[in-house]
Design a protein around this nucleic acid. Structure first.
Lengths: 239, 239
DNA sequence: CGATCCCTTGACTTTTATCAATAAACGTGG
DNA sequence: CCACGTTTATTGATAAAAGTCAAGGGATCG
């Protein structure tokens, strides 16, 4: 079985000690956010970290001329703000109604100082984020539009737990524009490719925000241009 | 003064306690590598971390059909392998002759466990890497060819310490193909844009691997579509 | 049920990639 | 130090991919 970490699944709770971090937030009150509201703004002092309990967010940066890039989607069960410096380098907006818990960074830092296990969990989560970012750099730098959309759909299927199943339905809570800004495409290109994949029978739309996977294998074949096994160079370094 | 971390400068020794990590490698013997040789292969067990003492490396991934992506360039003074999991997710190749020190990961982990300062330095370095990866995602997803090349040149100028100076020469040790694979372009497009920037008097070539900055301001204007000040949204979240 | 927002599709433009030829830089050995 | 061969870079012509502009259609929500 492949251990490749795909952009979206990377943030999920694998067995990396995430439970230790969640213990810290357990006591905190649950707050909530309407769709479209921001949890934090780019440039804000990063005084808190967040555990997302329900819903989904997009982390975005806006260029001066209006271009927008989405750096990551954050889903229920994931954390936000673990890897930030003084200020948040993005604006975090709710895609749909979001519930979350908040923890003071100072408290988190103190707890990490006390517990090597917690510390390892913290580092592991940041490393997974970096790994996901690298995967996304490959997608943005070297994959074409069809491969990008397919990769995204496969990642969304995986995080819904539908790795190899066809015929199951999974959610796509974000808009086509969100997808476009995450994949480095325009909304029209995303739309055209979704239509093409439907026409080819790889997926079937169930309204705007649900997809029925029809041929997961074919989708993966388009997406996973980047399998580990193929990446090993031909000869090894001397000594 | 802006604190934006650009893709390349992010890895350099800011005052983040990198000295603590370097103390650990100081005793290690210096090894060396010819241009083109690999320091580590994708898929290798990541048993060591490396301090690069001289030269430069590229970290690359190859897609099955031959497409290549460069995830990062690593320069003298920087570390390699601090954020990796079980295996290296890239192949690290020497761009020019490289000297480096090697440290067992187990020893590094033990030292980190003992020293909160070292620990903070470790986390800070990984966070800078993530920040650089995010910056690169914006470049790859939302900047055009000219902006990408200009951003790259500005980053290389910065790490040479020539932030605002014009008329100074800086190195570009990698080939045009390396630049292309880092910037998500083809070698021809990189070449055309370099020629265009020369024609416009923003840079002047000194052989293949040296650039004389002629108008750093204009170059920055093209590159830095992404200034912090412009990124703040118009209204703030209620309460 | 109606208004709005979001998505889809089509026609056309622009950007970047591809293919091909030439030219410049670099390294090597005489 | 020069000449040659090899590698790397540049430039041009053309093709392909994705972007832009514009119109229409379908969801969704009050």
């Amino acid at each position: 079985m492949s251990t490749t970490i795909s952009p979206l699944s990377a943030h999920r709770n694998t067995s990396n000690g995430i439970a230790d971090i969640r213990d810290l937030t357990r006591g905190q009150p649950i707050e909530s956010l309407d769709a479209g509201e921001a949890l934090a703004w780019q440039g804000d002092k990063a005084t808190d970290i967040f555990e997302i309990c329900g819903g989904a967010l997009r982390l975005c940066r806006i260029l001066p001329d209006g271009r927008r890039a989405i750096l990551r989607f954050v889903f229920a069960g994931e954390f936000l703000g673990l890897a930030e410096g003084e200020d948040f380098p993005w604006t975090a907006e709710a895609i749909n109604p979001v519930t979350f818990r908040r923890l003071r960074r100072s408290r988190f830092a103190a707890a990490v100082e006390q517990s090597p296990a917690l510390n390892r969990a913290h580092v592991a989560l940041i490393c997974e984020e970096l790994s996901a970012a690298h995967e996304q750099m490959i997608l943005l730098g070297r994959k074409n539009a069809e491969e990008r959309v397919a990769s995204f759909l496969v990642a969304m299927m995986r995080r819904a737990g539908l790795d190899d199943v066809s015929g199951d339905v999974f959610d796509l809570p974000m808009t086509r524009l969100d997808m476009a800004d995450y994949l480095g495409l325009t909304i029209e290109t995303v739309s055209r490719i979704m239509s093409k994949l439907s026409r080819q029978g790889l997926i079937a739309a169930r309204g705007r925000h649900q997809i029925c996977g029809r041929n997961a294998g074919a989708l993966r074949a388009i997406a996973e241009v980047d399998e580990e096994m193929c990446a090993r160079p031909l000869m090894r370094r001397a000594a």
